[in-house]
Design a protein around this nucleic acid. Sequence first.
DNA 1: TACCCCAGTCGAAGCGCTTCGACACCCCAT
DNA 2: ATGGGGTGTCGAAGCGCTTCGACTGGGGTA
Lengths: 341, 341
Amino acid sequence: MVTIADVARHAGVAASTVSYVLSGKRTISTDTRERVQRSVRALGYRPNASARALASQRSNVLALVIPLRTGMHVPVMMQFAAAVVTTARRYDHDVLLLTADEGPDGLERVAQSSLVDALVVMDIELDDERVPVLRELPMPSVLIGYPDDADGLTCIDLDFVAAGAHCVDHLADLGHRSLALLGTPSAVYERQTGFAQRTLTGFADAAERRGVVGVETPCEHTFDAILHTVRQLLDEHPDITGLVVQNEPIIGPLLDVLRRLGRRVPDDMSLVAICADDVAERQVPQLSSVSIPAERIGDQAVESLITKLEGGDVPALTLLPPALTARESSCQAPHRDLTTA
Amino acid sequence: MVTIADVARHAGVAASTVSYVLSGKRTISTDTRERVQRSVRALGYRPNASARALASQRSNVLALVIPLRTGMHVPVMMQFAAAVVTTARRYDHDVLLLTADEGPDGLERVAQSSLVDALVVMDIELDDERVPVLRELPMPSVLIGYPDDADGLTCIDLDFVAAGAHCVDHLADLGHRSLALLGTPSAVYERQTGFAQRTLTGFADAAERRGVVGVETPCEHTFDAILHTVRQLLDEHPDITGLVVQNEPIIGPLLDVLRRLGRRVPDDMSLVAICADDVAERQVPQLSSVSIPAERIGDQAVESLITKLEGGDVPALTLLPPALTARESSCQAPHRDLTTA
DNA sequence: TACCCCAGTCGAAGCGCTTCGACACCCCAT
DNA sequence: ATGGGGTGTCGAAGCGCTTCGACTGGGGTA
């Protein structure tokens, strides 16, 4: 392995000069700079990451904590991860992958051993045991999602309350008077996951505001569960004509189930999903949806982190406004007697 | 931050003694050992990762290169990643996440800067530009998938040739005489991706061996593409009664398409998928399938890597035997005149 | 009793880099 | 001519750890 001393010797300068050429932290004459750069190239020099980290107290590595838990929708996670890695690389950082089941200890481990300079933590629960740890850690972090008590933290998320509300508004605008939210598996709610809870809130509040009926039910991923859940829902609330779905993997089978139960989409039943755009577009009929801008959130998270690392200030909470795209799965509510409306 | 010197002072020993207690590389008296361990706990000492890496020439970090390319099936990737991280942690290693679009340079970067000790590279193409780089790198690597020329490499994969053959055998055993392979998007084949190519080979060879008709077609992910592909397939080969599907995201819509085209599964059309078990089980009818043991492959990859790091020997190529689970989607071929059989 | 060996511990030398202070040197203002 | 302030470069210290060689003392052997 070629070291900075080799480069220095080759270029006929001191090692510190090579370092300053590389970092640009002191002015170096054009002549010397070019000579050094030539030597770097000639020898194929790559600074040793550990030595650099040890001397500079900066590892240039970010930790990314991703959930690998039941009920989480994987492709969205992956989009996040991809965006985080790509953006981190733009800022000359690498990404260390941690799974959530290392828990708070895992965060302490990588932080206190100076393995990483900062952390991105996904899938924050409303009352998350990692939050107090994050607060005490001697390094910046950004949460994707946000807990009830977000004091002293930097959080980024889609505004799921608004997302839930948008869906209701969209359907109410189309004349639907009785709606249901078909949510994530119940485990996700029990875990007090922010995005699920907040969508629920947004849905319920908007339903009340609009004076429409809004019922909510979790839904597991198996076909039988979907069939059972939807059948029961429609038995108990036969007048439901609008469905909001926040549960990406069930979307395909759900369309099937509705067909089986004799409800045509959108003629008998309008559907709005909260999911990635490509999933919505792949269905037949294409789904009206509020998209989840995973890439933008991941980007934003890394950018905030880099800003914090450089001593800058970032907003405590960044809520991205949701956007609803109307496609084929939602339309005017079926005609009904106006006197009852 | 508390350093090893602090611990040494607190325990009344030399820093080197603390180091030996922690690493176990020299015998330390029970008395001293316990005293040191108490001090470590009392002070909450965590060794500095960079210092350790610099001194020991070991970062205890593995690189994981995952594809984030078009047509790749994301949940399977994620399962790999999860298995790799989990197993790496078991061996006290962390995982640095790289995306394939950093290309060969990315591998050189992390390797030559000693950021990592070893690499796991996924989604290897038959003629992969990263392979020569990997061969020259001064550290061990394990490939998931394998190129045409696997000389000097360590590769692990599901035996996709056998997987393709198993599917044919299963259907042929049930009396089907005309089969089709509904494959991945054509981009995946064009990229010369190993698993897709090999499945194709296994399928074609087995079809010939069994004396059945076997046609193959790639298939994109959109509903329209699926509809078009299947319709054309059945138009051109109306006698097809068995379908092998290697394209996880289209499975849901495919069942839909078949229904729409008036083919009942399994009565008119038997189906075998190559996909994760949970996906197969979630469908209606449940799919006969060859499962992709992502977790086992990930585990195995890390274990081989650790063995290599410790100077041990590992087989150049590990092919995991595929297992086919018969479920509801495949059955005896429809009755036909025996004289033509 | 003299010797050797081993278990247990220490001190010091690095690992490869960054960064601080010091030092030339040159140019400009006096 | 002389002093002052940049500019460009160097040397050395030090980041926190591992590891090597050396040292000490006690127990066994001859």
